[in-house]
Amino acid sequence: MILQTIVRFLIFLGVLYSQSLWSDEILVVMGQAYAIEKISVKQLANIYRRKTIINPTGERWNPINLSSNDPLRIAFAQKIFQQPPDVMEAYWNTQYFQGIMPPYSVNSVEAMLRVLETTPSAIGYILPCHLDGRVTVVLKLTVSDDLAGSCDPQQ
């Protein structure tokens, strides 16, 4: 009886461990020359919603997105908005009526890194496997998605 309980407990721990293996981390990054110290998830969501337009020093935020069907973009949107990118389009309809446009998008992580490196107050997101000297991490987001397949920066 005791042995059976221990076995069940070990199986339970094993399930928890395997679930933690599936979780992944998204790094919110800015160009080395333009990075700020820290940012909260809500501040990040407001920047990507274009609700917060300028940063504390008065420069215009330049949030950069991957294309709307990119798994990394979908996981990022789900994390900070609790909604996938296609549902957010209704929000951008409302903002268009107020004269506010959605963030620019790029086709690949490499393109995002290039834009972040050269654009003041540009902010974007990558996976840990994409991290290089061009950018600095300003926030880490833990997501439950398995994003290992998105490590090719040309994707």
């Binding site: 709307s68 446009m101 959605p102 620019y104």
Partner: peptide, 20 residues
């Protein structure tokens, strides 16, 4: 897509349906 793409900046203007 209704979003403007940075890499499609070869034209001096962009039109996207529903975004002007």
């Amino acid at each position: 897509s209704a979003e403007h793409n940075v890499e499609q900046a070869d034209r001096w203007y962009n039109y996207h349906w529903g975004r002007g």
